[in-house]
């Protein structure tokens, strides 16, 4: 339990406060150092850590939700429509094709709203952080680079045992067994 302060009264031995401070220093000297040797060893980052945004292009349906919800407007999406030949007896449909997907990480504020709103799980957080650049233009990651971050995305951690079962899980189980896991929509 916490304790109420004021135990170190001034009426003690002169210099006792300094001696106590030195005692802490001496005690710390005997302990292991806490310094992480970053460039030589990689830090252990939790999976939720917001380092860089990865794009799973195959899942993107160019719905533009992420770009619209971004508080910084740092996502650039270009697309064009492509006519899909009609199946037997159906109407011809059009499909959105992604031309450009870029995130300006100089501007991004790492709020994870885009990842939250993405309805088809095309965006993920990766804990990587090593992408400082000499030129600010290089901080705009185009789709290829965003796709490559995908390889560093860790699996999400399991939820607490008292948590509600996520809706996505039951939905995914319902979808199990269905063939074809390509891009939907």
């Amino acid at each position: 339990m916490g304790r109420v302060g004021g135990t170190h009264t001034s009426g003690g031995v002169p210099g006792i406060g300094l001696a106590k401070g030195l005692a802490v220093t001496l005690r710390t000297m005997t302990r292991r150092s806490v310094t992480g040797q970053y460039p030589d060893t990689s830090p252990e980052l939790p999976p939720r850590s917001r380092g860089v945004i990865a794009l799973l292009e195959e899942n993107c349906t160019v719905c533009m939700l992420c770009a619209r919800e971004c508080p910084d407007w740092c996502i650039y999406i270009d697309s064009h429509k492509e006519a899909v030949p009609a199946p037997e007896g159906g109407r011809p449909r059009s499909r959105n094709v992604l031309d450009r997907f870029a995130i300006d990480f100089a501007l991004c504020m790492y709020c994870s709203i885009c990842i939250e709103v993405c309805p088809f799980d095309a965006l993920f957080w990766s804990p990587e952080f090593e992408y400082a650049e000499y030129d600010i233009l290089d901080l705009t990651h185009e789709r290829d680079r965003l796709r490559e971050w995908m390889w560093t995305v860790p699996p999400p951690p399991a939820h607490d045992s008292r948590a509600e079962r996520p809706k996505e899980l039951s939905a995914a189980e319902g979808a199990e067994g269905r063939p074809g896991r390509g891009p939907r929509g």
Binding site: G5, H8, S10, G12, P14, G15, I16, G17, L18, K20, G21, A23, V24, T25, R27, T28
Partner: peptide, 13 residues
């Protein structure tokens, strides 16, 4: 540690 090193320190006081 923080408490010992600073709370009773005469100079700090």
């Amino acid at each position: 540690d923080i408490e010992w090193i600073i709370r009773g320190n005469e100079i700090f006081r």
